[in-house]
Amino acid sequence: MTPFLTRTRGRQRLHWTDWLAYAYLCLGVLLMFGPVLWLVISSFKTERELQHYPPRLLPYVQKMEKVPGYSDPLPVFKVTAGPLAGQEVAQVRRIGIVSQVVRPDAPQTIVKVPIKDRKPVEHVALATSNYAKLFKRFNFFQFFYNSTFITVVATIITLLINSMAAFALSKYDFRGRGTVMALIIGTLMIPPTVVLVPLFLIVRDFGMIDTLWGVIIPGAATPTGVFLLRQYMLTIPDEILDAARMDKASEWKIYWRIILPLSAPALAVLAILSIMWRWNDFLWPLIALQRQEHFTLQLALNSFRGEFNTDWASLLAMTVLTLVPIVAVFAFLQKYIATGIASTGGK
């Protein structure tokens, strides 16, 4: 138990505590990564394969073969008993417990084989049918568009208005600044989760219920964002602004030509946070959006639950498509996110 709680040890041979540590980490990898990986693998299984119990680790698809005289490719089976035992046959149709098959080299002669005497010929392959179905049967692109629109527009607005406020609060000395700061600190304590009812009324009065704007606007002014940016802007020397004033720059120009470029690292952190919040947002969109054509991906995923009596095939594919963009974006920006989230407390 003991030495593994501290870190100051030389680089000699692996101590037993090191083994314990690596064991824990490997278990961690299995537990943290495994489920998501399992979901991704499952999404590439055919619907038949999804029904398979016990589930198999890898996605299998049945071998299909084109047989002369039949327009569609036919599923291939291996016969396990009877006169054709050991041969691969293509199934034409199945009637009850009897399967009518043909030999690929003799496509005219139909042979009857009891279904218990045949086994499908399978190989590991990714089935994309779930994804194809998602695009064909459901309004996936609409959901994707809604989510993307909300994320992109909300992030732009958040960056713009929060950086403007942070600029005012960090670089101007005006009466009432303390009050504004106090009010913003105050809002840190009031998450939207506890003002849902009146928020709904106000957004309704603005005519924004069941519109994407009704999701975008209420969360655009985040105290976290203002703080993060203000803290950063305070480190920009005032003399640079004075120099720009001597250079005949207007205050607005100082904001966007000097302050914005110099705050780029902080803006990047806020952008990442905003993208994450918006893409993953759930409760407020659940309340504010009502018609299905306005649903975000998260709402669509949630609504799949009851409506289709859990159509896992589509649901799995859609889940993967929902998590891929965010994971992809963040795979590149891992360092930024970690520091960003750690420095702001995440929300």
């Binding site: 020397p237 003399e239 640079i240 001597m246 005949k248």
Partner: peptide
Amino acid sequence: PAERGLAMVFQSYALYPH
């Protein structure tokens, strides 16, 4: 400051870093 037609050199130089 812009209209007075002056120019100033600051102690910290105040160059635009970007």
